[in-house]
């Protein structure tokens, strides 16, 4: 505390401080204005129709709880849980849109509960909150998403080229990193898998890995250090042909990854170039060989239980 005076003299009156002062005073007024609307008087009640149960006995149940400004759907669910449904099953973790745990269908739209503010919804009618329908239901809002982890092991793993520098490290430009960093933002909420009609309506989980795993494949294929070519796999075992680019996945992505345009379409183009370009087809036939595949690679052992 003894340094107080000297610090004060050094900073007081400097030009930037004045700019901050006017900026801060103005934003203080804006922040205070927000308080007025969030004060007790603004508290009201809202109804939620929440999916309860597992198996054939599942049904929507109606709960009413008080809501206030700034609340998200997950807050309302927690409030219902602590007030009147202590066994209401819901998966959640970070409450900041980064862990991908609290995926659900809110008024029929796949969204993260922690990032859906009540102020965006029409609270004059009940808000429906249901589990993701493309996955087997465990109970209430919790689904079994483990098939996604198993599907990942079908995609051949990251295999870097030899290091660039004698100390065992690599060099890559930020512009090259940017492209895959978009895909690596994925939080594995699986909302894209939930909305994909190939999986949701046609249940083709065995034939088609789905948008999340195509994004995963794209980050491997476009990874500046990766040395494998997965084009054949994409066509033959990952079922990229099933995607007919309706872009539903891109629309629901909470990380705003341009799944279709930046990940799936470029992969489809690689498949088309390699398999449906007549000239390349001829070269391939003459060489009698497809793609590089290291012998020491394991793809199926272990996995998640």
């Amino acid at each position: 505390m003894d340094a107080g005076q000297s610090g004060r003299e050094k900073t007081a009156g400097s030009a930037p401080a004045k700019t901050f002062a006017s900026n801060i005073v103005a934003s203080g007024q804006r922040a205070a204005a927000r308080t007025d609307t969030s004060a007790g008087s603004a508290t009201r009640t809202a109804s939620f129709e929440v999916w309860r149960g597992s198996g054939p006995s599942g049904r929507l149940e109606t709960y009413t709880t008080s809501v206030s400004e700034g609340m998200v759907v997950l807050d309302a669910i927690h409030q219902i849980q602590s007030e009147s449904a202590t066994d209401l099953a819901v998966r959640w973790n970070c409450k900041a849109g980064k862990c991908g745990s609290c995926s659900a269908e809110i008024n029929g739209t796949p969204r993260l509960m922690c990032m859906t503010r009540l102020s965006e919804l029409n609270l004059s009618e009940p808000v429906t909150v249901e589990p993701m329908r493309a996955f087997p239901l465990v109970r209430d809002l919790v689904t079994d998403v483990s098939s996604n982890f198993r599907a990942k092991t079908r995609i051949r793993k990251f295999t870097p080229r030899p290091p660039d520098a004698p100390d065992g490290t690599w060099r890559m430009q930020q512009s090259d990193a940017d492209r895959v960093q978009e895909f690596r933002k994925c939080i594995e909420c699986f909302l894209c898998q939930d909305v994909c009609h190939v999986l949701r309506d046609h249940q083709l989980h065995e034939q088609f890995v789905g948008p999340r795993l195509l994004v995963h494949a794209a980050q491997l294929e476009m990874h500046p250090l990766d040395a494998l070519d997965r084009t054949t796999d994409l066509k033959d075992s990952h079922g990229i042909g099933y995607c007919n680019i309706t872009k539903c996945c891109t629309k629901v992505c909470p990380e705003h990854i341009t799944i279709t345009d930046n990940a799936i379409i470029p992969l489809k183009e690689r498949v088309a170039d390699q398999y449906y370009d007549p000239l390349r087809k001829l070269v391939r036939l003459m060489r009698g060989k497809k793609t590089v595949r290291p012998e020491n690679e394991r793809t199926t052992s272990g996995g998640l239980r």
Binding site: M1, A3, G4, G7, R8, K10, T11, A12, A17, K18, F20, A21, S22, N23, I24, V25, G28
Partner: peptide, 17 residues
């Protein structure tokens, strides 16, 4: 990023251990 109080002052300069 800087920390400022409601008066717009960068108070972190006031007390350096």
């Amino acid at each position: 990023g800087i920390l400022v109080n409601r008066e717009g002052r960068r108070f972190m300069f006031d007390d350096i251990p």
